[in-house]
């Protein structure tokens, strides 16, 4: 067997092992707009979480505080995660393009963390919630106007099924 083959086998063995960090993201992706995850009419499906509960909250310019609208969406997310304990989530924070790159990375992290803290406060275990910031690297809407910026200043809760079961 060549080296590439051995590496492939090794990688497969690692993937099959009881690796606690291996998670399988569902839907979402960096843009958070994926459409997979089952049938939205099934309340236990990720599609329901994404489309009915709402997987994202929006922020004011240069802010990371949660609006009342955001808080009610996040309450729904917390309720859903309590009812569906086999899921973990990565919360992705984003910024609009009106800012310098590294500042926006830090701002996106603030936003993602605000969501995480809210969900923890509402009963979700912290070890089910990871955060990441994409700053202004992955805009959802690409026009250079407030109508787009408002959609890009977001935190998206991307579900993952925990392979460790």
């Amino acid at each position: 067997m060549n080296i590439a083959g051995k590496l492939a086998v090794a990688a497969a063995l690692i993937a099959l092992g009881a690796c606690s960090n291996v998670t399988n993201p569902i839907g979402g992706g960096a843009g958070g707009a994926g459409g997979i995850g089952g049938d939205a009419s099934n309340p236990t499906s990720p599609a329901y979480f994404q489309q009915v509960v709402g997987d994202r909250v929006l922020f004011e310019v240069d802010q990371s505080s949660l609006t009342s609208t955001a808080q009610s969406i996040l309450q729904g997310q917390a309720d859903w995660m309590i009812a569906n304990p086999s899921y973990t989530a990565i919360i992705q924070g984003h910024a609009d393009e009106q800012g310098t790159r590294e500042y926006n990375l830090a701002l996106g992290a603030r936003r993602a963390n605000a969501v995480r803290e809210f969900l923890i406060e509402r009963g979700i275990a912290g070890n089910r919630l990871q955060v990441v910031s994409f700053g202004k690297e992955r805009p959802l809407e690409i026009c250079s106007a407030e109508s787009c910026y408002a959609q890009n200043r977001r935190a998206v809760t991307v579900l993952a099924s925990d392979l460790t079961g």
Binding site: S64, E102, L105, A106, A109, R110, A112, N113, A114
Partner: peptide
């Protein structure tokens, strides 16, 4: 460098 921990950089 910048290190972000619990949302704070």
């Amino acid at each position: 460098f910048s290190l972000t921990r619990a949302g704070n950089t």
